[in-house]
Nucleic acid binder design. Structure first.
Length: 656
DNA sequence: ATAGGGTTAG
């Protein structure tokens, strides 16, 4: 190879035909010369006439100054005279193109470097592969990768991370295998990229072994990726194991583990870890706060959530953080706060809109949800799969049969979204609520693919409300096929039988439940008072003020009965162990939590309660009446629905 | 030249 050294780091192309054949077919590159750069302007340097060394020096200077227009002119002049610069200089120029998202200029640089059959070093080809990946031009990146004579660990890793970022998981894993076959050893960069493409436990375990063998398990990038993937597969125990092996401490790894528990709905553990993190001397940043908010959301801790909001303010318009805040206020039942966050958000993405629409719908503000959807249609943001779920949920909640059916039938045509299992679920709920149980059942049969337990549970709920015992039994049977230990189904079914006075069937259900050893989770309600969480569990009287609470409860019941409250004993069967009717009804945890809330919260303050089980009909009546005679707003969030009790009515419209 | 953590439904 003949090299003409002109000043520093200047190269001329080699003209060897063998190498030329290896070169990238530049003709394939579609890039037009850009107007501003094709003609020097008056303020531009007259580079065309400079001697070669000066030309390359000037080019280098412009590259380092991040002066893209001048660098492009200098580059064109070099090209006319067959001059090339050093790889590092080109990589600086590519950085500049990336920073300005200058795709066309990037392609011109690529064309220049590869022209006249010049074959750049692996280093520089990697730079261009990375550039195409960052410009989301994966095909160009892949082509460059395929045709390069030698691929090093960076070449492979760049492609693997490109594919795992766009969720082409199989491709990413496949590349790891090919890489190993070519004898290139993965490094910590490779593993942290490929881990994110891992979608099964066996793959993950294999990778984890490789990581150990390579001695890379203590790398913090690898560690946070491992935590992340274990947690996405629901393997919190393993995630925690990886976390606990850490000796040095790292904020992002803390964020990973807190996020892992928050994501898996273990808010308590997420908050514990957050406390530990602070004790270890780390201070929270945006990603941390997002996960802490998620924990507040899960636990319905409005007051703690508000405190986090105060800290979140300094991150201003961080979209993800704002979305988490929005969701926290919605799920804690404070729509006023959610709305004020939403209106103040300068950037709103599909998640912001979907969160707000679903939040309004779940809290019983269906009309507002649909109005917001109309506003969304006028915005730049396109609705997605989840947005439509919120819309259908709003329709079902408000009993808007026609609107819901219209959106369901036309969502493909209007928004390009194929209805999925969850959309069917909403429509089944919609039909069920309207009492059209047969149509709902027919829709299940028409669904593509096997209906799952959630779908059948929706139908079962409708059967309870409309007292269709036979269909209920059928739906329950379907649920128990896939989910044989689902206590909720047994209880719901026994309640439905009890409602129709079919006592033999009730006994039958209870027998089979016992035979299978299905254990009913005890009812539990939580309420936050003065930054403390008070838990009331059925059959547990360990609360320090339990005697006073019980006394106040019976006083309250007396007053309620005076205005016509009759305990609905049908629901006593929700607690299968407690045989005494009214007595066990009185012990339902939400009643205790409501009374405690009335006792300890200042007047006018909303009583907010979170429950682990669906609310029973008797407690629902109880809450409505208490809200009326005590002139108090009560919000109860059960695992599925929100109940806003005010002035004797509930936002759920007595359907849940 | 290549890599990390966070948000929406059920």
């Amino acid at each position: 190879m003949q090299m003409q050294r002109v000043a520093f780091s200047l190269r001329v192309p080699c003209s060897h035909s063998v190498l030329s054949m290896r070169a990238i077919p530049v003709s394939k590159l579609k890039c037009k010369a850009l107007q501003p750069f094709s003609r020097p302007c008056s303020h531009m340097p007259n580079v065309a006439e400079s001697p070669p060394s000066t030309l390359v020096q000037q080019f280098t200077k412009f590259c380092y100054q991040r002066d893209l227009p001048r660098a492009m002119i200098a580059m064109e002049a070099m090209q006319r005279r067959g001059l090339w610069a050093d790889s590092v200089v080109y990589s600086e120029l590519v950085k500049c193109c990336l920073a300005r998202r200058a795709v066309q200029q990037g392609k011109l640089v690529h064309k220049h470097v590869f022209s006249n059959g010049y074959q750049p070093k692996t280093f520089l080809i990697n730079v261009f592969i990375n550039m195409y990946v960052k410009f989301a031009l994966l095909e160009e990146a892949q082509e460059l990768f395929d045709e390069m004579p030698e691929r090093n660990v960076v070449s492979w890793t760049t492609m693997i991370s490109a594919y795992s970022n766009v969720k082409f998981n199989r491709k990413a894993l496949e590349f790891l295998v090919l890489m190993l076959r070519e004898g290139v050893s993965p490094n910590s960069f490779t593993y942290s990229s490929v881990l994110r493409a891992c979608n099964g436990l066996s793959n993950l375990k294999q990778l984890h072994c490789c990581i150990f063998k390579a001695g890379l398990e203590s790398d913090i990038f690898v560690r946070s990726a491992l935590i992340d993937v274990y947690s996405k597969l629901g393997e919190l125990h393993n995630a925690l194991g990886v976390f606990n092996e850490m000796v040095s401490g790292d904020l992002v790894v803390w964020n990973s583990i807190i996020g892992a528990f928050a994501q898996n709905s273990d808010g308590d553990e997420a908050l514990n870890l957050f406390k530990r993190m602070k004790r270890a001397g780390f201070s929270a940043e945006d990603a941390t706060l997002t996960s802490v908010l998620r924990a507040c959301t899960v636990l319905a801790l409005l007051e703690l959530g508000r405190q986090v909001h105060v800290h979140a303010v300094k991150y201003g318009q961080d979209l993800i953080l704002n979305n988490a805040l929005l969701d926290m206020y919605c799920k804690c039942g404070s729509l006023e706060d959610a709305n004020s966050v939403f209106t103040r958000m300068e950037k709103k993405d599909v998640i912001s809109w979907s969160t707000m629409i679903a939040g309004l719908a779940q809290n019983g503000f269906s009309q507002e949800a649909l109005r917001l959807f109309e506003q969304m249609k006028l915005s730049e943001v396109k609705p997605n799969y989840i947005t439509l779920l919120g819309v259908l949920f709003a329709c079902s909640h408000a009993g808007l049969l026609e609107d819901g059916w219209y959106y369901f039938q036309n969502m493909k045509q209007l928004f390009g979204i194929d209805p999925g299992r969850e959309h069917y679920g909403c429509v089944i709920d919609l039909l069920g609520r309207a009492g059209k149980l047969d149509e709902a059942a027919r829709l299940i049969q028409e669904m593509e693919g096997e209906p799952d337990a959630v779908t059948w549970r929706t139908l079962l709920g409708a059967c309870r409300v409309h007292r269709n015992v036979d269909l209920a039994a059928y739906a329950a049977k379907q649920i128990l096929k896939t989910d044989p230990d689902d206590a909720g189904t047994y209880i719901l079914l026994s309640n439905i039988y009890a409602n129709s006075q079919r006592w033999e069937d009730v006994t039958e259900v209870r027998k089979s439940m016992k035979a299978r050893g299905v254990i009913k989770e005890p009812g539990c309600s939580w309420i936050e008072v003065n930054k403390q969480i008070h838990a009331f569990i059925l059959g547990d009287d360990s609360h320090p003020q339990i005697d006073e609470i019980n006394r106040q409860l019976s006083l309250l019941i007396d007053r309620l009965m005076a205005v016509g409250y009759i305990p609905d004993t049908n629901f006593v069967l929700q607690d299968l162990e407690g045989e005494q009717r009214e007595v066990s009804l009185l012990s339902h945890s939400e009643k205790l939590a409501i009374v405690f809330g009335l006792m300890s919260l200042s007047k006018g303050k909303t009583v907010r309660i979170r429950k682990n089980l669906r609310i029973c009909g008797d407690c629902h009546v109880f809450a409505k009446l208490v809200a009326k005679i005590e002139e108090r707003s009560i919000v109860i969030r059960d695992p599925i629905r929100y109940h806003h009790f005010q002035d004797g009515v509930c936002s759920c419209g007595d359907y849940w």
